[in-house]
């Protein structure tokens, strides 16, 4: 399926407002390429925090994008987000399984773990500051972001997924359950535990 064909097939006006769990949500994309452009950075950070390797994170994101376009490009636009995250989470799970086997067979070849704090520090230094922020506020935000990313990296797998999908992506409990392939009760449990852990680890940084 060529790029032109995909664009011609899916580049049609979308009903701007759609209902998701009784709330009206305005979608920010109306074609598959716009959706991928919208989701790619967040998916990359999600994969990076889960895999601790930049190259592996890029591979996972590329494979997830490929599979979404291959299998689900003709599905309803509203289904792309939970489907994409379902694919992404399964790719991350496959990554953990491969690494477990690889580490057992070749224990001397364990890959270097890239610290989330290092990435955050580098990214923020190279990034563009918000125009409304003072330098000291920028520095505080940089430190908080680096600590938050490091703490998220330390969460258990399912807690990490639940937290990122609910807090970062803003998915509802039902949508998160679809993306994670579990029940809504499990999502609530994982999310609650993740929040408690992050609150206790970061309470000093988020208190005045």
């Amino acid at each position: 399926m060529s790029l032109a064909h995909i664009k011609a097939k899916h580049n049609k006006p979308l009903v701007e407002d759609c209902q998701s769990d009784t709330t009206v949500v305005t979608l920010e994309y109306n074609s598959i390429d716009q959706f991928l452009k919208y989701i790619e950075r967040r998916a990359f950070h999600m994969a990076r925090l889960s895999t601790r390797s930049l190259d592996d994170a890029h591979d996972i994101v590329q494979e997830s994008m490929y599979k979404l376009v291959e299998k689900y490009a003709d599905k309803d636009h509203r289904a792309w987000k939970p489907l994409f995250y379902r694919i992404l989470n399964s790719k991350i799970t496959d990554y953990y399984r491969r690494n477990t086997v690889k580490d057992r067979l070749f224990p001397w070849k364990k890959s270097d773990i890239e610290d989330a704090q290092d990435y955050c520090n580098t990214a923020v230094e190279q990034g563009i500051a918000r125009s409304s922020e003072e330098p000291d506020a920028m520095m505080i935000r940089k430190q908080n972001t680096a600590k938050l990313a490091s703490q998220i990296q330390g969460l258990a797998g399912r807690q990490k997924q639940a937290f990122i999908l609910r807090t970062w992506e803003g998915l509802s409990t039902r949508e998160t359950a679809k993306a994670m392939g579990c029940s809504e009760g499990s999502v609530k449990t994982h999310y609650s535990r993740a929040m408690n852990r992050l609150r206790s680890a970061l309470k000093e940084d988020y208190n005045d």
Binding site: F44, A123, T145, A149
Partner: peptide, 28 residues
């Protein structure tokens, strides 16, 4: 803070993501 992290994605990563998107759309 998570939004801030996303906005400050490194340029090299943005380039690689754009390339991945292109390959996915072209089904390479």
């Amino acid at each position: 803070d998570l939004q801030f992290l996303e906005e400050n994605t490194q340029a090299t990563d943005i380039f690689r993501l754009a390339r991945s998107r292109k390959f996915a759309l072209e089904q390479k």
